[in-house]
Simulated scan of single mutants.
Amino acid sequence: MTQSRADFHEQHQAGAQAEALRLFEQKAVLQGAWLNWVASQIYALQPAAYANMVRRELARLQEISEN
């Protein structure tokens, strides 16, 4: 039986948030090199649905930091 999208999201939400925070915290360290680095980190995440969750959470953190 395949896992529903909602179940997958619920099961992996905390991990995706933690991963996004870990990636976001490197922004100050890597500065100009961060964008390429973070793109490669997200690209390596599997499955794609999880990578998308991390990407969305990272976008949310970016938005919060800019406001």
Rank of each mutant, 00 (worst) to 15 (best):
M1H: 14
M1C: 06
M1E: 11
T2H: 07
Q3Y: 05
Q3N: 10
S4M: 00
R5T: 14
R5L: 05
A6R: 09
A6D: 09
A6N: 05
A6P: 00
A6H: 03
A6E: 12
D7V: 08
D7P: 04
D7S: 12
F8Q: 04
H9N: 08
H9T: 12
H9E: 13
E10W: 04
Q11P: 00
Q11V: 02
Q13A: 13
A14W: 01
G15I: 06
G15Y: 08
A16S: 12
A16C: 07
A16F: 04
Q17I: 05
Q17Y: 08
Q17F: 02
A18Q: 15
A18P: 08
A18N: 14
E19M: 10
E19S: 11
A20S: 08
A20C: 03
A20H: 07
L21S: 11
L21D: 11
L21P: 03
L21M: 13
L21N: 14
L21Y: 05
L21W: 08
L21F: 05
L23G: 09
L23Y: 09
F24Q: 13
F24E: 11
E25I: 10
Q26D: 11
A28C: 04
A28Q: 14
A28Y: 01
V29Y: 07
V29A: 08
L30G: 11
Q31M: 10
Q31G: 04
G32Y: 08
A33I: 06
A33V: 11
A33D: 15
L35G: 15
L35S: 15
N36T: 13
W37P: 05
W37S: 07
V38Q: 11
V38Y: 03
A39C: 03
A39H: 14
A39E: 14
S40P: 01
Q41V: 00
Q41R: 14
Q41D: 05
Q41T: 04
Q41G: 01
I42R: 07
I42C: 04
I42F: 00
Y43L: 09
Y43K: 15
Y43A: 15
Y43N: 14
A44W: 08
A44V: 05
L45R: 12
L45S: 06
Q46P: 01
Q46F: 06
P47F: 03
P47A: 05
P47M: 00
P47Y: 06
A48R: 09
Y50N: 01
N52W: 02
N52D: 12
N52H: 09
M53A: 06
V54F: 02
R55S: 12
R55K: 13
R55I: 04
R56L: 12
R56Y: 05
R56A: 14
R56I: 07
L58G: 00
A59S: 13
A59M: 09
A59V: 12
R60Q: 15
R60F: 05
R60H: 14
R60D: 15
L61G: 13
L61D: 10
Q62A: 01
Q62S: 03
E63M: 02
E63R: 04
I64E: 12
I64C: 03
I64L: 03
E66H: 09
E66Y: 06
E66T: 13
E66A: 11
N67H: 10
N67V: 05
N67S: 09
N67G: 13
